[in-house]
Design a protein around this nucleic acid. Structure first.
Lengths: 224, 224
DNA sequence: CGTTGCGTTGAATAAGGTCAAATAGAGTGG
DNA sequence: CCACTCTATTTGACCTTATTCAACGCAACG
Protein backbone atom coordinates (compact mmCIF):
# COMPACT_ATOMS: atom_id res chain seq x y z
CA UNK A 1 0.00 0.00 0.00
CA UNK A 2 2.78 2.41 0.76
CA UNK A 3 3.83 2.68 -2.84
CA UNK A 4 0.36 3.74 -3.74
CA UNK A 5 -0.80 6.14 -1.12
CA UNK A 6 2.34 7.25 0.60
CA UNK A 7 5.33 9.10 -0.70
CA UNK A 8 8.04 7.45 -2.65
CA UNK A 9 11.51 8.77 -2.11
CA UNK A 10 11.30 9.51 1.55
CA UNK A 11 14.31 8.81 3.70
CA UNK A 12 14.24 6.02 6.28
CA UNK A 13 13.84 8.34 9.24
CA UNK A 14 11.10 10.15 7.45
CA UNK A 15 9.29 6.90 7.00
CA UNK A 16 9.51 6.34 10.72
CA UNK A 17 7.84 9.66 11.39
CA UNK A 18 5.10 8.67 9.07
CA UNK A 19 3.78 6.10 11.43
CA UNK A 20 3.00 8.91 13.82
CA UNK A 21 0.75 10.34 11.18
CA UNK A 22 -1.66 7.49 11.10
CA UNK A 23 -3.75 7.60 14.18
CA UNK A 24 -6.17 4.78 13.93
CA UNK A 25 -7.16 1.84 11.91
CA UNK A 26 -10.81 1.26 11.56
CA UNK A 27 -12.99 -1.42 10.02
CA UNK A 28 -16.00 -0.26 8.05
CA UNK A 29 -18.70 -2.75 7.22
CA UNK A 30 -20.32 -2.85 3.85
CA UNK A 31 -23.05 -0.25 3.68
CA UNK A 32 -21.65 1.87 6.51
CA UNK A 33 -20.55 5.42 5.87
CA UNK A 34 -17.04 6.65 6.55
CA UNK A 35 -18.36 10.20 6.73
CA UNK A 36 -21.55 11.86 5.60
CA UNK A 37 -22.05 14.84 3.36
CA UNK A 38 -22.02 18.05 5.42
CA UNK A 39 -20.35 16.33 8.37
CA UNK A 40 -17.47 18.08 10.10
CA UNK A 41 -14.08 17.50 8.53
CA UNK A 42 -11.51 15.88 10.80
CA UNK A 43 -8.93 14.40 8.50
CA UNK A 44 -8.19 12.15 5.58
CA UNK A 45 -8.73 8.43 5.18
CA UNK A 46 -6.36 6.08 3.43
CA UNK A 47 -8.03 2.90 2.26
CA UNK A 48 -6.09 -0.16 3.40
CA UNK A 49 -8.50 -2.59 1.87
CA UNK A 50 -12.00 -2.53 0.52
CA UNK A 51 -14.02 -0.40 -1.80
CA UNK A 52 -15.89 2.89 -1.40
CA UNK A 53 -18.14 5.22 -3.31
CA UNK A 54 -18.42 8.94 -2.70
CA UNK A 55 -21.72 10.61 -3.38
CA UNK A 56 -23.28 14.03 -3.34
CA UNK A 57 -26.83 14.76 -2.24
CA UNK A 58 -28.70 17.19 -4.43
CA UNK A 59 -31.29 19.46 -2.82
CA UNK A 60 -34.13 17.68 -4.60
CA UNK A 61 -33.30 14.39 -2.98
CA UNK A 62 -31.46 12.62 -5.76
CA UNK A 63 -27.91 11.71 -5.02
CA UNK A 64 -25.10 11.29 -7.48
CA UNK A 65 -22.08 9.05 -7.17
CA UNK A 66 -18.96 11.14 -7.69
CA UNK A 67 -16.31 8.46 -7.47
CA UNK A 68 -15.24 4.93 -6.65
CA UNK A 69 -12.17 4.38 -4.50
CA UNK A 70 -10.09 1.30 -3.81
CA UNK A 71 -7.19 0.37 -1.58
CA UNK A 72 -4.27 2.75 -1.59
CA UNK A 73 -6.42 5.73 -2.45
CA UNK A 74 -7.18 8.72 -0.25
CA UNK A 75 -10.65 9.88 0.73
CA UNK A 76 -11.86 13.10 2.27
CA UNK A 77 -9.87 15.85 0.58
CA UNK A 78 -13.06 17.64 -0.35
CA UNK A 79 -13.53 18.51 3.31
CA UNK A 80 -10.48 20.72 3.75
CA UNK A 81 -11.87 23.76 1.98
CA UNK A 82 -14.88 24.34 4.19
CA UNK A 83 -13.99 22.20 7.22
CA UNK A 84 -16.99 20.16 6.22
CA UNK A 85 -17.36 17.31 3.79
CA UNK A 86 -19.16 18.14 0.59
CA UNK A 87 -19.89 14.52 -0.21
CA UNK A 88 -20.38 11.34 1.75
CA UNK A 89 -18.31 8.16 1.55
CA UNK A 90 -19.91 4.74 1.83
CA UNK A 91 -18.25 1.32 1.90
CA UNK A 92 -19.36 -1.02 -0.88
CA UNK A 93 -17.70 -3.96 0.85
CA UNK A 94 -16.16 -4.61 4.23
CA UNK A 95 -13.16 -2.32 4.36
CA UNK A 96 -10.30 -1.16 6.49
CA UNK A 97 -9.03 2.40 6.60
CA UNK A 98 -6.33 4.50 8.28
CA UNK A 99 -7.38 7.84 9.65
CA UNK A 100 -5.00 10.78 9.25
CA UNK A 101 -5.93 13.69 11.52
CA UNK A 102 -5.72 16.85 9.47
CA UNK A 103 -3.88 18.95 12.06
CA UNK A 104 -1.16 16.36 12.30
CA UNK A 105 -0.91 16.09 8.57
CA UNK A 106 -0.36 19.84 8.22
CA UNK A 107 2.14 19.84 11.04
CA UNK A 108 4.15 16.94 9.74
CA UNK A 109 4.07 18.10 6.16
CA UNK A 110 5.80 21.27 7.34
CA UNK A 111 8.61 19.22 8.80
CA UNK A 112 8.92 16.74 5.98
CA UNK A 113 9.23 18.47 2.63
CA UNK A 114 8.71 15.21 0.82
CA UNK A 115 5.45 14.66 2.58
CA UNK A 116 4.17 18.12 1.80
CA UNK A 117 5.03 17.64 -1.82
CA UNK A 118 3.29 14.31 -1.78
CA UNK A 119 0.06 15.69 -0.41
CA UNK A 120 0.02 18.47 -2.96
CA UNK A 121 0.47 15.84 -5.62
CA UNK A 122 -2.28 13.60 -4.27
CA UNK A 123 -4.71 16.51 -4.23
CA UNK A 124 -3.69 17.55 -7.69
CA UNK A 125 -4.24 14.01 -8.91
CA UNK A 126 -7.75 14.15 -7.55
CA UNK A 127 -8.35 17.32 -9.56
CA UNK A 128 -7.06 15.64 -12.70
CA UNK A 129 -9.23 12.62 -12.03
CA UNK A 130 -12.31 14.81 -11.68
CA UNK A 131 -11.51 16.50 -14.96
CA UNK A 132 -11.45 13.11 -16.61
CA UNK A 133 -14.92 12.43 -15.29
CA UNK A 134 -16.10 15.79 -16.57
CA UNK A 135 -14.78 14.87 -20.01
CA UNK A 136 -16.57 11.57 -19.79
CA UNK A 137 -19.88 13.09 -18.71
CA UNK A 138 -19.67 16.06 -21.00
CA UNK A 139 -18.65 14.62 -24.30
CA UNK A 140 -18.97 10.88 -24.49
CA UNK A 141 -21.89 8.75 -25.54
CA UNK A 142 -23.21 6.00 -23.30
CA UNK A 143 -21.15 3.22 -24.85
CA UNK A 144 -17.96 5.23 -24.60
CA UNK A 145 -18.65 6.07 -20.98
CA UNK A 146 -19.04 2.45 -20.02
CA UNK A 147 -15.93 1.48 -21.95
CA UNK A 148 -13.94 4.24 -20.25
CA UNK A 149 -15.30 3.14 -16.90
CA UNK A 150 -14.27 -0.47 -17.40
CA UNK A 151 -10.85 0.48 -18.72
CA UNK A 152 -10.27 2.74 -15.75
CA UNK A 153 -11.21 0.00 -13.31
CA UNK A 154 -9.08 -2.50 -15.18
CA UNK A 155 -6.07 -0.23 -15.07
CA UNK A 156 -6.39 0.48 -11.37
CA UNK A 157 -6.78 -3.21 -10.63
CA UNK A 158 -3.70 -3.97 -12.70
CA UNK A 159 -1.71 -1.41 -10.69
CA UNK A 160 -2.60 -3.49 -7.62
CA UNK A 161 -1.60 -6.76 -9.25
CA UNK A 162 -5.12 -8.01 -9.61
CA UNK A 163 -6.30 -9.35 -12.92
CA UNK A 164 -7.01 -6.47 -15.25
CA UNK A 165 -9.17 -8.57 -17.52
CA UNK A 166 -11.47 -10.35 -15.13
CA UNK A 167 -13.02 -8.83 -12.05
CA UNK A 168 -16.05 -8.45 -9.88
CA UNK A 169 -17.96 -5.19 -9.75
CA UNK A 170 -18.62 -3.98 -6.24
CA UNK A 171 -21.35 -1.57 -7.21
CA UNK A 172 -24.87 -1.92 -8.56
CA UNK A 173 -25.98 -0.93 -12.05
CA UNK A 174 -27.71 2.03 -10.50
CA UNK A 175 -24.49 3.24 -8.88
CA UNK A 176 -22.59 2.84 -12.12
CA UNK A 177 -25.33 4.74 -13.90
CA UNK A 178 -25.34 7.51 -11.35
CA UNK A 179 -21.59 7.88 -11.72
CA UNK A 180 -21.77 7.90 -15.52
CA UNK A 181 -24.83 10.07 -15.85
CA UNK A 182 -26.97 7.21 -17.18
CA UNK A 183 -30.00 5.30 -16.01
CA UNK A 184 -29.51 1.80 -14.67
CA UNK A 185 -31.47 0.29 -17.58
CA UNK A 186 -29.13 1.98 -20.03
CA UNK A 187 -26.11 0.61 -18.20
CA UNK A 188 -27.58 -2.87 -18.38
CA UNK A 189 -28.39 -2.52 -22.07
CA UNK A 190 -24.94 -1.23 -22.95
CA UNK A 191 -23.31 -4.08 -21.04
CA UNK A 192 -25.39 -6.47 -23.13
CA UNK A 193 -24.46 -4.65 -26.31
CA UNK A 194 -20.74 -4.70 -25.53
CA UNK A 195 -21.12 -8.41 -24.90
CA UNK A 196 -22.87 -8.97 -28.23
CA UNK A 197 -20.05 -7.10 -29.91
CA UNK A 198 -17.62 -9.54 -28.34
CA UNK A 199 -15.75 -6.94 -26.32
CA UNK A 200 -16.64 -8.22 -22.86
CA UNK A 201 -18.43 -11.02 -21.08
CA UNK A 202 -20.91 -10.06 -18.42
CA UNK A 203 -22.37 -12.40 -15.85
CA UNK A 204 -24.21 -10.19 -13.34
CA UNK A 205 -21.37 -8.42 -11.59
CA UNK A 206 -18.65 -10.57 -12.97
CA UNK A 207 -16.87 -8.90 -15.89
CA UNK A 208 -14.34 -10.29 -18.29
CA UNK A 209 -12.66 -8.08 -20.85
CA UNK A 210 -12.29 -10.09 -24.04
CA UNK A 211 -11.06 -7.44 -26.42
CA UNK A 212 -9.03 -4.74 -24.70
CA UNK A 213 -8.02 -3.15 -27.98
CA UNK A 214 -11.62 -2.98 -29.10
CA UNK A 215 -12.64 -1.21 -25.93
CA UNK A 216 -9.79 1.24 -26.29
CA UNK A 217 -10.69 1.93 -29.88
CA UNK A 218 -14.20 2.71 -28.76
CA UNK A 219 -13.13 5.66 -26.68
CA UNK A 220 -10.19 6.75 -28.77
CA UNK A 221 -11.83 7.26 -32.11
CA UNK A 222 -15.55 7.65 -32.02
CA UNK A 223 -17.26 10.71 -30.76
CA UNK A 224 -20.73 12.22 -31.07
CA UNK B 1 -7.83 40.51 -4.89
CA UNK B 2 -5.99 39.49 -1.76
CA UNK B 3 -9.16 38.60 0.04
CA UNK B 4 -10.04 36.23 -2.73
CA UNK B 5 -6.93 34.41 -3.70
CA UNK B 6 -4.62 34.93 -0.79
CA UNK B 7 -4.93 33.89 2.81
CA UNK B 8 -6.93 35.80 5.29
CA UNK B 9 -5.57 35.93 8.79
CA UNK B 10 -1.90 36.15 8.00
CA UNK B 11 0.25 38.38 10.18
CA UNK B 12 1.76 41.56 8.77
CA UNK B 13 5.24 40.15 8.42
CA UNK B 14 3.82 37.11 6.73
CA UNK B 15 2.14 39.35 4.24
CA UNK B 16 5.47 40.94 3.47
CA UNK B 17 6.97 37.55 2.70
CA UNK B 18 4.14 36.92 0.36
CA UNK B 19 5.36 39.45 -2.11
CA UNK B 20 8.42 37.31 -2.56
CA UNK B 21 6.16 34.56 -3.70
CA UNK B 22 4.85 36.29 -6.72
CA UNK B 23 7.53 36.37 -9.32
CA UNK B 24 6.11 38.06 -12.32
CA UNK B 25 3.09 39.84 -13.61
CA UNK B 26 2.16 39.07 -17.12
CA UNK B 27 -0.41 40.33 -19.57
CA UNK B 28 -2.21 37.77 -21.66
CA UNK B 29 -4.12 38.91 -24.69
CA UNK B 30 -7.49 37.51 -25.54
CA UNK B 31 -7.11 34.20 -27.35
CA UNK B 32 -3.60 33.55 -26.05
CA UNK B 33 -2.89 30.53 -23.89
CA UNK B 34 -1.46 30.77 -20.42
CA UNK B 35 -0.28 27.19 -20.72
CA UNK B 36 -1.15 24.33 -23.01
CA UNK B 37 -2.33 20.85 -22.18
CA UNK B 38 0.65 18.53 -21.72
CA UNK B 39 3.05 21.45 -21.24
CA UNK B 40 5.58 21.29 -18.42
CA UNK B 41 4.32 22.49 -15.08
CA UNK B 42 6.18 25.42 -13.59
CA UNK B 43 3.85 26.98 -11.10
CA UNK B 44 0.46 28.45 -10.41
CA UNK B 45 -1.20 31.52 -11.86
CA UNK B 46 -3.35 33.94 -9.89
CA UNK B 47 -5.70 35.93 -12.10
CA UNK B 48 -5.40 39.66 -11.35
CA UNK B 49 -7.90 40.62 -13.97
CA UNK B 50 -9.54 39.06 -16.96
CA UNK B 51 -11.27 35.81 -17.76
CA UNK B 52 -10.04 32.35 -18.71
CA UNK B 53 -11.30 28.99 -19.77
CA UNK B 54 -9.55 25.70 -19.13
CA UNK B 55 -10.01 22.91 -21.62
CA UNK B 56 -9.03 19.32 -22.16
CA UNK B 57 -8.15 17.83 -25.51
CA UNK B 58 -9.60 14.39 -26.15
CA UNK B 59 -7.64 11.97 -28.30
CA UNK B 60 -10.23 12.13 -31.09
CA UNK B 61 -9.69 15.84 -31.54
CA UNK B 62 -12.67 17.23 -29.69
CA UNK B 63 -11.90 19.43 -26.75
CA UNK B 64 -14.01 20.04 -23.73
CA UNK B 65 -14.13 23.15 -21.59
CA UNK B 66 -13.57 22.14 -17.97
CA UNK B 67 -13.94 25.50 -16.29
CA UNK B 68 -14.20 29.27 -16.42
CA UNK B 69 -12.02 31.37 -14.15
CA UNK B 70 -12.15 35.02 -13.19
CA UNK B 71 -10.03 37.44 -11.20
CA UNK B 72 -8.91 36.25 -7.79
CA UNK B 73 -8.98 32.60 -8.81
CA UNK B 74 -6.03 30.27 -9.18
CA UNK B 75 -5.13 28.35 -12.31
CA UNK B 76 -2.76 25.48 -12.89
CA UNK B 77 -3.21 23.17 -9.91
CA UNK B 78 -3.87 20.24 -12.21
CA UNK B 79 -0.18 20.34 -13.18
CA UNK B 80 1.29 19.44 -9.80
CA UNK B 81 0.47 15.75 -9.89
CA UNK B 82 2.38 14.85 -13.04
CA UNK B 83 4.62 17.92 -13.42
CA UNK B 84 2.68 18.48 -16.58
CA UNK B 85 -0.58 20.27 -17.21
CA UNK B 86 -3.51 18.05 -17.99
CA UNK B 87 -5.55 20.85 -19.49
CA UNK B 88 -4.80 24.10 -21.25
CA UNK B 89 -5.80 27.61 -20.13
CA UNK B 90 -6.85 30.25 -22.65
CA UNK B 91 -7.72 33.89 -22.06
CA UNK B 92 -11.22 34.86 -23.15
CA UNK B 93 -10.37 38.54 -22.76
CA UNK B 94 -7.23 40.57 -22.22
CA UNK B 95 -6.03 39.53 -18.80
CA UNK B 96 -3.32 40.02 -16.23
CA UNK B 97 -1.89 37.27 -14.08
CA UNK B 98 0.67 36.72 -11.33
CA UNK B 99 2.93 33.73 -11.69
CA UNK B 100 3.80 31.74 -8.56
CA UNK B 101 6.79 29.44 -9.12
CA UNK B 102 5.94 26.09 -7.61
CA UNK B 103 9.26 25.51 -5.88
CA UNK B 104 8.96 28.82 -4.08
CA UNK B 105 5.40 28.10 -3.14
CA UNK B 106 6.37 24.81 -1.50
CA UNK B 107 9.29 26.39 0.25
CA UNK B 108 7.37 29.33 1.59
CA UNK B 109 4.37 27.30 2.60
CA UNK B 110 6.69 25.31 4.83
CA UNK B 111 7.74 28.48 6.61
CA UNK B 112 4.32 30.05 6.81
CA UNK B 113 1.77 27.64 8.27
CA UNK B 114 -1.07 29.93 7.29
CA UNK B 115 0.03 29.83 3.70
CA UNK B 116 0.31 26.07 3.61
CA UNK B 117 -3.16 25.77 5.04
CA UNK B 118 -4.41 28.23 2.49
CA UNK B 119 -3.05 26.29 -0.45
CA UNK B 120 -4.54 23.06 0.82
CA UNK B 121 -7.84 24.87 1.09
CA UNK B 122 -7.62 26.34 -2.39
CA UNK B 123 -6.91 22.94 -3.89
CA UNK B 124 -9.70 21.37 -1.89
CA UNK B 125 -12.06 24.06 -3.13
CA UNK B 126 -11.15 23.14 -6.67
CA UNK B 127 -12.05 19.53 -5.93
CA UNK B 128 -15.40 20.60 -4.53
CA UNK B 129 -16.01 22.82 -7.54
CA UNK B 130 -15.33 19.92 -9.89
CA UNK B 131 -17.76 17.75 -7.98
CA UNK B 132 -20.42 20.38 -8.51
CA UNK B 133 -19.80 20.22 -12.24
CA UNK B 134 -20.03 16.44 -12.14
CA UNK B 135 -23.40 16.76 -10.44
CA UNK B 136 -24.50 19.20 -13.09
CA UNK B 137 -23.36 17.04 -15.98
CA UNK B 138 -24.50 13.80 -14.47
CA UNK B 139 -27.97 14.51 -13.24
CA UNK B 140 -29.41 17.74 -14.54
CA UNK B 141 -31.44 18.40 -17.65
CA UNK B 142 -30.38 21.09 -20.12
CA UNK B 143 -32.52 23.84 -18.62
CA UNK B 144 -31.26 23.14 -15.14
CA UNK B 145 -27.66 23.15 -16.31
CA UNK B 146 -28.00 26.56 -17.88
CA UNK B 147 -29.77 27.92 -14.83
CA UNK B 148 -27.05 26.55 -12.55
CA UNK B 149 -24.41 28.01 -14.83
CA UNK B 150 -25.95 31.48 -14.75
CA UNK B 151 -26.49 31.39 -11.00
CA UNK B 152 -22.89 30.36 -10.46
CA UNK B 153 -21.59 33.19 -12.61
CA UNK B 154 -23.95 35.63 -10.92
CA UNK B 155 -22.76 34.61 -7.49
CA UNK B 156 -19.09 34.90 -8.36
CA UNK B 157 -19.64 38.31 -9.90
CA UNK B 158 -21.49 39.42 -6.80
CA UNK B 159 -18.53 38.34 -4.63
CA UNK B 160 -16.45 40.76 -6.70
CA UNK B 161 -18.93 43.60 -6.31
CA UNK B 162 -20.08 43.46 -9.89
CA UNK B 163 -23.74 43.37 -10.69
CA UNK B 164 -25.08 39.87 -10.06
CA UNK B 165 -28.15 40.47 -12.19
CA UNK B 166 -26.75 41.97 -15.34
CA UNK B 167 -23.53 40.93 -17.03
CA UNK B 168 -21.70 40.19 -20.22
CA UNK B 169 -20.74 36.63 -21.12
CA UNK B 170 -17.14 36.29 -22.15
CA UNK B 171 -17.57 32.94 -23.85
CA UNK B 172 -19.35 31.73 -26.97
CA UNK B 173 -22.42 29.52 -26.99
CA UNK B 174 -20.20 26.70 -28.11
CA UNK B 175 -17.91 27.11 -25.09
CA UNK B 176 -20.88 27.21 -22.74
CA UNK B 177 -22.22 24.10 -24.41
CA UNK B 178 -18.94 22.31 -24.19
CA UNK B 179 -18.72 23.11 -20.49
CA UNK B 180 -22.29 21.99 -19.85
CA UNK B 181 -22.24 18.92 -22.06
CA UNK B 182 -24.67 20.42 -24.58
CA UNK B 183 -24.53 21.45 -28.21
CA UNK B 184 -24.39 25.13 -29.00
CA UNK B 185 -27.83 25.06 -30.62
CA UNK B 186 -29.29 23.62 -27.45
CA UNK B 187 -27.70 26.36 -25.39
CA UNK B 188 -29.18 28.96 -27.69
CA UNK B 189 -32.60 27.37 -27.57
CA UNK B 190 -32.64 27.12 -23.81
CA UNK B 191 -31.60 30.75 -23.46
CA UNK B 192 -34.57 31.65 -25.63
CA UNK B 193 -36.85 29.44 -23.59
CA UNK B 194 -35.70 30.93 -20.30
CA UNK B 195 -36.38 34.33 -21.80
CA UNK B 196 -39.87 33.34 -22.90
CA UNK B 197 -40.52 32.12 -19.39
CA UNK B 198 -39.58 35.56 -18.10
CA UNK B 199 -36.62 34.38 -16.07
CA UNK B 200 -33.88 36.20 -17.97
CA UNK B 201 -33.34 38.65 -20.82
CA UNK B 202 -30.81 37.66 -23.45
CA UNK B 203 -29.33 40.02 -26.01
CA UNK B 204 -26.49 38.14 -27.63
CA UNK B 205 -23.91 37.91 -24.85
CA UNK B 206 -25.60 40.38 -22.59
CA UNK B 207 -27.59 38.67 -19.85
CA UNK B 208 -30.01 40.11 -17.36
CA UNK B 209 -31.49 37.95 -14.63
CA UNK B 210 -35.09 39.00 -14.16
CA UNK B 211 -36.32 36.34 -11.77
CA UNK B 212 -33.60 35.06 -9.50
CA UNK B 213 -36.03 33.05 -7.42
CA UNK B 214 -37.45 31.40 -10.51
CA UNK B 215 -34.00 30.34 -11.65
CA UNK B 216 -33.22 28.96 -8.22
CA UNK B 217 -36.46 27.06 -8.13
CA UNK B 218 -35.56 25.51 -11.43
CA UNK B 219 -32.52 23.75 -10.03
CA UNK B 220 -33.81 23.16 -6.53
CA UNK B 221 -36.94 21.19 -7.18
CA UNK B 222 -37.20 19.66 -10.58
CA UNK B 223 -35.23 16.64 -11.57
CA UNK B 224 -35.43 14.08 -14.33
C1' DC C 1 -20.81 46.40 -48.66
C1' DG C 2 -19.32 41.94 -48.90
C1' DT C 3 -17.13 38.77 -45.71
C1' DT C 4 -16.77 36.31 -41.59
C1' DG C 5 -17.89 34.53 -37.18
C1' DC C 6 -21.48 33.95 -33.94
C1' DG C 7 -26.20 33.25 -32.80
C1' DT C 8 -31.04 31.86 -33.64
C1' DT C 9 -34.60 28.91 -35.31
C1' DG C 10 -37.00 24.91 -37.66
C1' DA C 11 -37.66 20.02 -39.02
C1' DA C 12 -36.13 15.42 -38.83
C1' DT C 13 -33.60 11.96 -36.22
C1' DA C 14 -31.29 9.38 -32.79
C1' DA C 15 -30.00 8.49 -28.13
C1' DG C 16 -31.28 7.68 -23.91
C1' DG C 17 -35.16 7.78 -20.47
C1' DT C 18 -39.57 5.91 -18.68
C1' DC C 19 -42.68 2.42 -17.62
C1' DA C 20 -43.63 -2.25 -17.17
C1' DA C 21 -42.89 -7.11 -16.95
C1' DA C 22 -40.00 -11.14 -16.57
C1' DT C 23 -35.85 -13.38 -14.57
C1' DA C 24 -32.01 -14.39 -11.64
C1' DG C 25 -29.62 -14.72 -7.41
C1' DA C 26 -28.81 -14.10 -2.47
C1' DG C 27 -30.44 -14.52 1.86
C1' DT C 28 -33.94 -16.33 5.29
C1' DG C 29 -36.75 -19.17 7.87
C1' DG C 30 -39.21 -23.42 7.96
C1' DC D 1 -32.88 -28.80 1.48
C1' DC D 2 -36.75 -26.21 -0.11
C1' DA D 3 -39.96 -22.60 -0.51
C1' DC D 4 -40.26 -17.75 0.01
C1' DT D 5 -38.86 -13.05 -0.30
C1' DC D 6 -36.33 -9.31 -1.64
C1' DT D 7 -33.40 -6.93 -4.45
C1' DA D 8 -30.74 -6.52 -8.58
C1' DT D 9 -30.77 -7.20 -13.37
C1' DT D 10 -32.39 -7.81 -17.99
C1' DT D 11 -35.35 -6.86 -21.77
C1' DG D 12 -39.22 -4.82 -24.52
C1' DA D 13 -42.28 -1.02 -26.09
C1' DC D 14 -42.91 3.57 -26.17
C1' DC D 15 -41.79 8.47 -25.29
C1' DT D 16 -38.97 12.65 -24.34
C1' DT D 17 -35.03 15.19 -24.92
C1' DA D 18 -31.33 16.80 -27.03
C1' DT D 19 -28.65 16.36 -31.46
C1' DT D 20 -28.14 16.85 -36.29
C1' DC D 21 -28.58 19.20 -40.44
C1' DA D 22 -29.76 23.23 -42.63
C1' DA D 23 -31.13 27.88 -43.36
C1' DC D 24 -31.16 32.47 -42.00
C1' DG D 25 -30.12 36.79 -39.12
C1' DC D 26 -27.08 39.87 -36.85
C1' DA D 27 -23.09 42.58 -35.84
C1' DA D 28 -18.28 43.68 -36.37
C1' DC D 29 -14.69 44.73 -39.54
C1' DG D 30 -11.79 45.40 -43.38
Amino acid sequence: MRELCLPVGLAQDEMARLDELVETRRRIRRGETLYDAASAFAGLYAIRSGFFKTHLLHSDGRDQVTGFYMNGEILGMDGISASRHSCGATALEDSEICFIPYARMEELSRELPGLQHHFYRVMSREIVRDQGVMMLLGSMRAEERLAAFLLNLSQRLAARSYSPSEFHLRMTREEIGSYLGLKLETVSRIFSRLQEEGLISVQQRHIRIDDLGGLRKLIGQEHC
